[in-house]
Amino acid sequence: MSTGTAATRRRMIEQVGAGVLAAGGLLLLAPRARADLVKAQKLMKELIGDRTPQEGKVRLEMPQIAENGQSVPLTAAVDSPMTPDNYCRVVHILADGNPEAGVCSFEFTPMSGRAEFSTRMRLAQTQNVWAVAEMSDGSVWMTKTEVKVTIGGCGG
């Protein structure tokens, strides 16, 4: 009998302890994460205006886990015939957990032949990377992918 209550009490202490730790962790993380998300949303508005991005057409290939945030490979590809009347004009890459939300903007022409490019980027922490594609007809498409980062890549 006495062992039962002791076990219950221990479990309770553990649960409360875990709760306090979790809450503390959230308090530490939340303000920064929110600020960076707002920055990314603001930049997106500057880039595409009031247009609402649709899901689809654009693909973003990145590793799920990046051991080193200094150099993370990324490939963005858009479904587009790339003809003079129907092509992908530009792909913007944004990051919602970096000190600055902008990563790069890649402008294509019909001479590109294929709407795809690759580069390597820095990630300060685990976050979502966004790819936003603007087509020649004015439509906007986007996708997000989460990359977990073991060691951040912004020096500091």
Binding site: C104, E107, F108, S112, G113, R114, F117, T119, R120
Partner: peptide
């Protein structure tokens, strides 16, 4: 012009860029 890229500080050192051209 074939293509053009605007780079921000989030691009890694020794920037690597690959793309296509017809």
């Amino acid at each position: 012009p074939v293509c053009e890229m605007t780079l921000h500080p989030a691009i890694s050192a020794n920037p690597f860029i690959s793309f296509f051209a017809k």
